[in-house]
Design a protein around this nucleic acid. Structure first.
Lengths: 197, 197
DNA sequence: AAGGGTCCGGGACAGTTGACCTGATGAGCG
DNA sequence: CGCTCATCAGGTCAACTGTCCCGGACCCTT
């Protein structure tokens, strides 16, 4: 094995853990399978992390930040508001279809965190970041395109975050891509309707 | 312990498993803890179920049917459509607030089923039933109150199911009951707007 | 070149879990 | 009164998991 500083090894183990968890599920992912996925011995794992929980904490914060980056990336201002919203949803949706396991993992980790004593704050952080993410998007678009909202920004942000979350989970369970054109259209129209240009 | 036929004992063990899983989480629930919760010896468990998986299957179908019953119960026709929708959501929401663990369990079981080889169909069945549930509700209300829909019934049903699911999960993670008045109002208004009286 | 901190490997350990078995006891039904 | 079904206590077993220890290899500094 190539030697590398602990910090980098930690990052490598975190990435390996995400791959292993996305593939096998959180419950089936052991310290041994993570070490194997990273191509290092089990001892290295405990050299870099004091415990498995410490790694899971790293995994949760990493994948949450990653998720936020995905959504932020998806939304770029376009000609009309409706077009912007539609394209943003489409870009997000394309990512979900391309990496379903990774998105499924976010749900698993949420529940793992909620059940693990002392980890509840990580689950809350995850969903608070989702809310803040949509708050930022709304305010950014509001400045760029200029519109008034029918409801308070935090309420809209939370609604959008929750709805996107529910739609994603529903898709991950049921699949059936064709069914989503109508639904995304409905959502887009709704959002566009909530603002008055 | 009182003697009872195997079938009834199975039901009792299933209920005990739901309580134990809702309290401790699916991952921490062992055959021993379920037997203890039901107040029987571990032998009885294996007398009634060939394996733990057989019990989990029973748990998933039971809790899914239970959930469907809850939502069906929540929706009773009222004076106006908007009032009906609002009251239905409120009744459902009251149940979520009263039994958060039970609802959380439905999410855990979905993921358990998706990860357990041979159990994927149970997760799909769960979400298909959600879709059918809302389809029934829409058609029932459509007959009772008489209205036309702006989008296909299956699409609306799936959208409602997914949105409710997402809102519930968001609430279970973040809590903060006060924030939901605005959101439920928005949802209600949206649904009412999707139909033309 | 020598030393020491950093990193890595193999192996061992203790605890838990699901599954299974045995043998015995009781309750209720035909 | 049978005999079957249901229950129980107790223990065994193999597999797996997180954690830890010890020895050795590597690399940078002095």
């Amino acid at each position: 094995m190539a030697r590398m500083p602990s910090a980098e090894r930690r990052r490598q183990l975190t990435e390996a853990a995400i791959r292993a968890m996305a593939r096998d599920g959180v419950a089936r992912t052991t310290t041994r399978s993570i070490a194997a996925e990273a191509g290092v011995s089990l001892s290295v794992f405990h050299y870099c992390f004091d415990s498995k929980q410490e790694l899971v904490e790293s995994v949760i914060t990493t994948i949450t930040d990653h998720y936020v980056g995905i959504v932020k990336e998806a939304l770029k201002p376009r000609a009309s508001l409706e077009e912007t919203v539609r394209a943003g949803f489409q870009a997000y949706w394309d990512h979900v279809r391309a990496h379903p396991d990774e998105h499924m993992l976010t749900y698993e980790l949420t529940q793992y965190a909620l059940r693990q004593p002392g980890f509840e704050h990580l689950a809350r952080r995850q969903y608070e970041l989702y809310g803040e993410l949509y708050t930022d998007i709304i305010e950014q678009l509001s400045k760029t395109m200029g519109f008034q909202l029918a409801i308070p920004v935090p309420a809209l942000a939370r609604y959008l975050a929750a709805m996107t979350d529910g739609l994603t989970l529903n898709y991950l369970v049921l699949g059936d891509e064709d069914a989503w054109t109508d639904i995304l259209d409905t959502v887009t129209a709704h959002i566009a309707g909530l603002v008055s240009a």
